[in-house]
Design a protein around this nucleic acid. Structure first.
Length: 338
DNA sequence: CATACACA
DNA sequence: TGTGTATGG
């Protein structure tokens, strides 16, 4: 998912402490998917409570958010609304890939291929309605606000940064830049370590920020041209052109001015081009939101995580102490509203 | 992924 | 003070 523009974009590593007091509009889907895919046992099974419900996302949310808030960061989650019709092909492909991965997971398990099994287990992750519902309950109990996007969460998050209601969008994907987010932060993690795929190796990963204006100036293009490049490479709304990666796309778009000319020159076409461009330039968003960070409801968090999902009381209590110590839950924001 | 804990 | 490894639910 998302757009593969990583090589073109200028990224600046930062410390978590540099993001203190910043409001970060986090793409909920992206984050939950990451948690579900990565927080697993060595055989690939996600964390589960005694009733068999998956809890990886709750674990990820609790520990990461309490650490970020302790560092003074003010997260707000943005949930997806109704996906646009032009995304349906991508959505169908994801469903299919997931079903396929489930079968292969079982097969690999039976064949005793641990690494294969793990890989397919990850690929079978799904952010379903229950996952979303649990996550909203936990965020609410933790006092972290969330916003419901009318359509794409990345677009809503970008809008919130454009308006100045948030400082950054937070996502591993680059889409929010296309939607016009002035600033994006990736790798918004605590530990700073990430496992490299397939290898038994960990590398240091720091949060990194990207700035739209700076990126565009550096490449010598407009946002519309950045979108054109994405369209060449492929987005959630179109498959992309054969044998054209980010670098070639940049060259072509700069040379010919825009996607229309590139298509004409290369003998390609993108069905629904105008609608897709319009969607990136002017996505459905809402201004119907209020960002309030509240004191965590300790009892609700303990009830949800410990009583309902078998989390350790000791660990959850420790995380709650971090939350309560955070400035985000405290004075300024809260008092300004009450 | 984040944390805890062992051990250098 | 750091690095590797196991565990969480």
């Amino acid at each position: 998912m998302g757009v593969d523009l990583g090589d073109l974009l200028k990224k600046k590593p930062v410390e978590l402490s540099d993001l203190s007091s910043k409001v970060i509009a986090i793409d909920a889907y992206n984050t939950l998917y990451q948690f579900l895919s990565i927080i697993r046992q060595r055989d690939g099974t996600p964390l589960k409570d005694s009733k068999g419900n998956v809890t990886s996302h709750l674990s990820g949310l609790l520990y990461r958010m309490s650490s970020l808030m302790e560092a003074g960061i003010k997260p707000v989650f943005v949930f997806d609304g109704k996906p646009p019709e032009m995304k349906s092909s991508t959505i169908e492909k994801r469903v299919e890939a997931r079903e396929n991965a489930k079968i292969k997971w079982t097969q690999a398990q039976e064949a005793g291929l641990a690494e294969e099994a793990y890989k397919y287990a990850q690929a079978s992750s799904r952010v379903d309605a229950t996952i979303v519902e649990d996550s909203r309950k936990l965020l609410d109990a933790m006092g972290i606000p969330f916003v419901d996007a009318p359509s794409e969460g990345e677009a809503q998050a970008a809008y919130m940064v454009s308006r100045g209601d948030a400082d950054y969008t937070g996502s591993q994907d680059y889409d929010s830049l296309l939607f016009g987010a002035p600033r994006v932060v990736r790798n918004l993690t605590v530990s700073g370590k990430r496992k490299v795929p397939r290898k038994n190796l960990y590398v240091d990963v720091k949060p990194e920020i990207m700035q739209l204006e700076e990126t565009l100036n550096g490449l010598g293009i407009s946002r519309e041209q950045l979108i054109d490049i994405a369209l060449c490479v492929g987005t959630d709304y179109n498959p992309g052109l054969a044998n054209i990666g980010p670098k070639k796309a940049l060259k072509l778009v700069k040379e010919h001015g825009g996607i229309k000319e590139v298509l004409a020159r290369t003998g390609n076409e993108i069905p629904g081009l105008a609608d897709i461009k319009e969607f990136f330039m002017n996505p459905p968003v809402t201004k119907d939101y209020a960002l309030r960070w509240k004191k965590p409801k300790t009892d609700s968090v303990l009830q949800l995580l410990c009583d309902e999902h078998d989390f350790s009381r000791e660990r959850v209590t420790k995380a709650l102490e971090k939350l309560e110590a955070s400035s985000g839950a405290g004075q300024r924001t809260l008092d300004s509203w009450f």
